[in-house]
Design a protein around this nucleic acid. Sequence first.
DNA 1: AAAGATAGCAACCGCCTGCTT
DNA 2: CAAGCAGGCGGTTGCTATCTT
Length: 287
Amino acid sequence: MGRHSCCYKQKLRKGLWSPEEDEKLIRHISNFGHGCWSSVPKLAGLARCGKSCRLRWINYLRPDLKRGTFSLHEEKLIIELHDVLGNKWSQIAAQLPGRTDNEIKNHWNTSIKKQLMQRGVDPNTHKPLSKVNEESIENKSQVSYDQKDHIHTCPPATHEFLINRFVTTHETFSYTQPPTESADMFFTDSDTDPTRSTTDSLNQSDNVGCIQTNSGYHPWGLTDAMKSQNQSHGLEDYIKWNDQYLPFLLGKPSIESKPDVNYEQDQSVDACNKQIQRISTSYAHFS
DNA sequence: AAAGATAGCAACCGCCTGCTT
DNA sequence: CAAGCAGGCGGTTGCTATCTT
């Protein structure tokens, strides 16, 4: 594909936007909307490419932008979402009203990353740095083995791994329905009230969540009763996700060579645990 | 006060995906 | 089905402001 066609045009301005250019763009979009971005520069009287206009509007001129420094809550949220989503800045930004993906990405790279490193946390894996170092040493020796056998890098997929990745213990697994379709994950209160806004929910509950699919809302995580039960046993009450594995859990394998797993429409917790057992069996050859 | 180093951020680049022709 | 186009995304660059020496 190469470069965007509009970028080939001659005499297009680049670099920082002048106040006059901003004004033209704001006036045009306020009056007519952006429509097709590639036509915006011409209609707005700007010597810029459509992509540049789009970026300027989304990252800087949009009226609903919050701007200013990130609050502690926002930073916490970014860290948690990054743990789940990785560098999916647009998805992370979608959970922070008034913030852009670019803004979050910049803040991550310039500030949050350093904070995490100072706290001894690896910003990529969100694990303690000491643990990451140990694993990297182990992985180095593993790489040669994998290369020898032409096995691409695959995570360990033992039952324990999957359980640990998705749920803390069997008892804590609290789907009311197994999800059946592609899903966008979001968090909500344990009452799983879909009318609550995501950010409101996140303010109140970090560890109990919900999967939203086309077929409805599927709570996951710990009920309050389970939380207190687990805490009395000294168990962690958070649930870790990995977007690479999420499609499997949802029956939507997205990476080649992964086993096709069908999920039954069974609403019992036992059935969910059986599904996990089945997944881990399917992965057994990787471990 | 000046020069160099560092941090923060706006914007660009290149790639990917989905839609249209 | 292939090619072209537009929109979107993540990674990166480079400019500017601030800090340090």
